[in-house]
Nucleic acid binder design. Sequence first.
DNA 1: GTCGGTGCTACAAATTCCGTAGCAACCCAT
DNA 2: ATGGGTTGCTACGGAATTTGTAGCACCGAC
Lengths: 102, 102
Amino acid sequence: MARAHGKNATRRPMMTVLTTLGRRWSLRILWELRDGPLSFRALRAAADDISPSVLNARLAELRELDVVTREEGGYALTDAGRELGAILMQLARWAERNCGRR
Amino acid sequence: MARAHGKNATRRPMMTVLTTLGRRWSLRILWELRDGPLSFRALRAAADDISPSVLNARLAELRELDVVTREEGGYALTDAGRELGAILMQLARWAERNCGRR
DNA sequence: GTCGGTGCTACAAATTCCGTAGCAACCCAT
DNA sequence: ATGGGTTGCTACGGAATTTGTAGCACCGAC
């Protein structure tokens, strides 16, 4: 990906996060891990059978960001990852509120 | 995009949201609108000079989701969009906390 | 008129993603 | 120790998306 996000990357942390979480499947993967660890294959199944190559790439990025770890029992959220999960939970509530009646 | 998100998308607000917000640049675009309306070109400039075709596509999706409107002065967040912005704000704080020291 | 701004489209090239197949390693039972 | 069942993960060709650049049509000011 080479150039990250140009000049705006100077105010770095948010840009980094938006870049990696902004990639396809990243949010979904975090979301599917909300209830505990999942094996590679289970995660794949949960996330609409994403292709393994992409899943592996995303997991690498999320581990790089330190929100996911690989432990016994599969892939799981780190402490930071669980905080992120809480934010996603709010997103879910927002979704219910705004897209529910449609 | 054709198949959206298979079985999980059927009756799931969160899946809809994760699908459209999960696309490249969606989050970033919302983020850049946090301080008020921006014109198409200003938005483009703010978001690392994203290509106009993609920006236009994302704006269409975000308007479809009803988080962005086009009004006098450019593109702006709707009420729902501002709620989403608040969630992004928490993400930003999370980013500062976790990626700041790195 | 022309100059500068706007929103936006066209389109080829580059990148990314998908889908399938399949491998190596591990267990557990036979 | 052989077979069958997992597991995580890679390879790779084709499909889809994104990028970059160019440029159009429109508007108001001069």
